[in-house]
Simulated assay, not measured.
Amino acid sequence: MFAAMADCTPEELLIGGPLWTRQAVVELVRLVVGVDMTEQGVGLWLRGHGFTPQRPARRAYEQQSAVVRAWLDEEYPAIGTRTKAEDAAIAWVDRCGLRSDAVPPGRSWAPKGRTPIVRVTGKRPRVNVMSAVASRGALWFTVFTGRFTAAVFTAFLDRVARQAGRKVHVVADRHPVHRGKAVRSWLEDNADRVELHLMPGYSPELNPDELLNADLEHNVNASRARTVDRLAHGTRRFLRRRQRQPHVVRDYERLRHHHEAMVRWSIVRVTSRRLTRPR
């Protein structure tokens, strides 16, 4: 029963939706052992066997498992080997946007039936952040308010290479700007300083810089910023603090390896189910 919960969803077992709720487990127990349990009893029983309620990670339907597995098993190890041979650095790059109305202000205690009110601006200020993290704890970033273009991206790559002081192997997603003609031309002219490697499509969980984005969105209270300048100032202030905390930045890389292990496990699980599924 526990193996079924770990390897399948209620939807796959035709007893519910995509999530293992206590109600779905009640139905599973009734079908497997013929015992009717209460939802409260199921919750205590699951905790006693090492199960906890968790926010599920998201995976895009468009993600190609075979491509991701090949990248993890072949392409990324090859990047690491070249990096060591060239005494270069690996930097994981990503872009994110912060908008004052995109993140709720959190929760506040209040009398029952009286919803608390937080004053926010109706102007919706927004800033963009381009950042790069390295396994040794280095963090580079730029905060800008305009569009994300090839000029912005190449200027950021140039800064990363200058501040790193050696060649940098940059790992990024397959954003159209990253694959554009202007960026390819710049990379050809700067091949001795920067080399760009694109991750498989629809696989943000492989990038530790995504954890920095989540950290940023959680700790910068964008909803309280009344102007673009204030939002940009708060964003830069937080990122500069993280630059002085390389142990936190290194944790992004450590957690990426955890994500990578989970991705490998999920790929193997899906593949094995396909191979063993009766035709």
Rank of each mutant, 00 (worst) to 15 (best):
F156D: 04
H247T: 13
F153D: 07
G41C: 05
R250P: 13
V133W: 02
G137C: 05
G146V: 07
R119F: 11
Q23K: 01
L231K: 10
R269Q: 13
A91Y: 14
I117N: 07
K123E: 00
P246W: 05
G122C: 03
K167E: 05
A70M: 03
A232W: 10
L31Y: 06
R124M: 00
T145E: 13
R30D: 06
P111D: 12
L206Q: 11
V160M: 04
M1F: 15
R242L: 13
L14D: 13
L28R: 09
D209I: 08
T121A: 02
T145S: 15
R107N: 06
R69Q: 11
P278G: 12
A150R: 07
H178S: 03
R107Q: 11
M262R: 14
D229S: 14
H258G: 07
W20N: 11
R179P: 10
A57L: 06
E74Q: 02
A60L: 02
H175N: 11
N207F: 02
P111A: 07
I117A: 04
K123L: 03
V32K: 09
V170G: 11
V160I: 08
R274L: 12
L31P: 01
A85W: 05
G165H: 00
T271N: 15
T38N: 06
D229Y: 13
R136T: 09
A85T: 01
V68N: 02
M1D: 14
F2R: 09
T142V: 02
G16R: 00
